[in-house]
Design a binder for these strands. Structure first.
Length: 512
RNA sequence: CGGGGCGUAGCUCAGCCUGGUAGAGCGCCACGUUUGGGACGUGGAUGCCGGAGGUUCAAAUCCUCUCGCCCCGACCA
């Protein structure tokens, strides 16, 4: 049992923070509501970026970069958009500092028009698109940007909700409403498959209700996941913006019919919030658990020895293990690299940057086991004199703490890849089984209330979306409609709230 | 933005009521004994006691003002 981590049963939100701290994923910054993403956490983001970026390119998108600062007047052009973001915008009003005469500094050089720090970039990008797009021949425009954004949140939690966060935002412009809708759904699918395949997190796809959609969108689609405390978390959103932003920013094109028309635009994004989701979905009371595809390091090797002779013997043997996994060239290359704190890192996969570590620190082996366990490293290999003699090693699996004795002759890159694939699949199945076991069906409003008041989780029921009804239900149950699941499309029934027939199936849950 | 709480060593906190040389545990460093799931001993380093005023011979402690953070609510990726 980890002594620096509260258990999930004791205090779920403290557990979440303890896991982050123990794995050194992030730290509080000296700025209100902001965090520092530490190397362990950032490498997870890098892995996600690498995989997602590939998926974006495969669907025809290109990357670009737009400015952090947005003229304030841009925000006010789309009425719902302003309404949605006005309350959480950081405003830049000055452009220099000067001495205040009391030994400190004060803002000076007031700007004629203040800038806001982007809470999202629809407006600047819309402005640029209006200049770039002239004719249907310029369409579609399929641009993504990797950036930071700022939303001045009053209550923040590491990764899940911070004032500044990293994300990607795709912004596309199309000739027809149909094509924009297809694009919106295509990117929702990209997100869903990325989250399921890469992060091993099962999702439920579907549109948001009007009251939950993005400010300025015609339709918002989301992927929703269930966390271990029975609360839902939105992992990503894809918006069909219709002509709303095109009209606000004058994004027009000369159509095939020689008539000028407004474009149909979309936007879609996922953020570092996904890391919070990853932590809450897979980790356990012993700390972080990472799916192999996300893990920056796949294996941590813990040497065991008493004497210097034993150390030399174990070291020579470990070199053989690493050579079997990473190749002789990498063993040689690693000798010329600086390493921090007596931990030697070898590249297992140069493309993904994933590595194998050998922990030579002067700690006791038990310490090291806990250390790497808490950091979620998928596999640990323990090597002591007895293993050298038997030409074997003890392989420990993070996911279920199982251990196996493996012969050196069976160790290879393919062997490790095979184990990674099976752990990846196991983690997805485990998460899906948990979600299914915590998804309930309600036939009446009373039933919905009692399920939400009790065990929580996802609740499916027939419900006719309605702003007032949703507000009332939220007030009474703290739950919201997460989406109208695609997997129940076409099914209709009697609305549990209004009693009217023909209501679609909705997915309710309390949410992050 | 309302309600509550807290600022003292890297971390968690004691000391404050009743003013008098700055403390503990953990962590860190050194040495030794240890080492197959969180070792132990000995020694050591570390503080503008959040900041600014005030009261006093004397302030971490009392008073005033400030700043920051955390928690709980309303809003949110």
């Amino acid at each position: 049992m980890a002594k620096n981590i509260k258990t999930r049963a004791e205090d779920y939100s403290q557990w979440y923070l303890d896991v982050i701290k123990a794995a050194q994923l992030a730290d509080y910054a000296p700025v209100r509501g902001c965090m520092v993403i530490r190397p362990e956490g950032f490498s997870i983001w890098e892995a996600m970026q690498r995989d997602l970026d590939r998926r974006f390119k495969e669907t025809g998108h290109v990357n670009a970069y737009f400015p952090l600062l947005i003229p304030m007047s841009f925000m006010s052009r789309e009425a719902q958009h302003v309404e949605g973001f006005a309350m959480e915008c950081a405003v830049v009003t000055h452009h220099k500092l000067q001495q205040d005469g009391k030994g400190g500094l004060q803002a000076a050089g007031e700007l004629e028009e203040p800038y806001i720090i982007r809470p999202t970039s629809e407006t600047v990008i819309g402005h640029m698109y209006s200049q770039w797009i002239q004719s249907y021949r310029d369409l579609p425009v399929l641009i993504n940007q990797w950036a930071n954004v700022m939303r001045w949140e009053l209550r923040t939690r590491l990764f899940l909700r911070t004032a500044e966060f990293l994300w990607q935002e795709g912004h596309t412009a199309h000739e027809t409403a149909e094509e924009a809708e297809q694009e919106t759904l295509r990117m929702l699918d990209v997100y869903a498959s990325f989250v399921e395949e890469f992060m091993a997190m099962p999702v439920i796809k579907g549109p948001k209700t009007d009251s939950e959609k993005f400010p300025g969108a015609v339709t918002t689609y989301a992927i929703e996941s269930l966390m271990q405390d029975g609360k839902a978390l939105q992992n990503g959103t894809s918006h069909n913006l219709g002509q709303n932003f095109a009209k606000a920013f004058d994004i027009k094109f000369l159509g095939r019919d020689q008539k000028i028309e407004h474009c149909y635009t979309t936007s879609w994004g996922v953020s570092t919030r996904l890391i919070g989701s990853l932590i809450m979905m897979h980790s356990d009371d012993d700390g972080l658990v990472l799916p192999p595809r996300v893990a920056p390091n796949l294996v941590a090797i813990v040497p065991i020895f008493k004497t210097d002779e034993e150390k030399a013997k174990v070291a020579a043997y470990i070199e053989k293990i690493v050579a079997a996994l990473c190749g002789d060239d990498e063993v040689a290359a690693a000798k010329n690299r600086l390493s921090s704190g007596d931990i030697t890192r070898y590249f297992f996969d140069k493309h993904t940057g994933q590595g194998v570590l050998v922990d030579w620190r002067d700690n006791r082996p038990g310490d090291k086991q806990f250390h790497w366990e808490q950091r979620g490293v998928p596999f640990r290999i323990e090597v002591g004199p007895r293993d050298v003699d038997g030409s074997a090693m003890v392989v420990k699996k993070r996911l279920d703490r199982s251990k196996d004795v493996v012969k050196l002759e069976n160790v290879s890159a393919a062997w490790l890849r095979g184990m990674c694939e099976s752990v990846q699949a196991e983690m997805f199945e485990k998460a899906r089984a948990y979600r299914d076991a915590n998804t309930h069906r309600a036939e009446s409003y009373d039933e919905l209330k009692s399920i939400l008041a009790g065990k929580g989780g996802f609740v499916r029921c027939f419900f006719q979306p309605d702003r007032e009804a949703e507000a009332k239900i939220k007030e009474e149950t703290k739950a919201t409609v997460r989406c109208l699941p695609f997997d129940a499309r076409g099914k209709t029934g009697q609305c549990i709230y209004s009693g009217k027939d023909g209501a679609p199936e909705a997915l309710f849950a309390q949410a992050y």
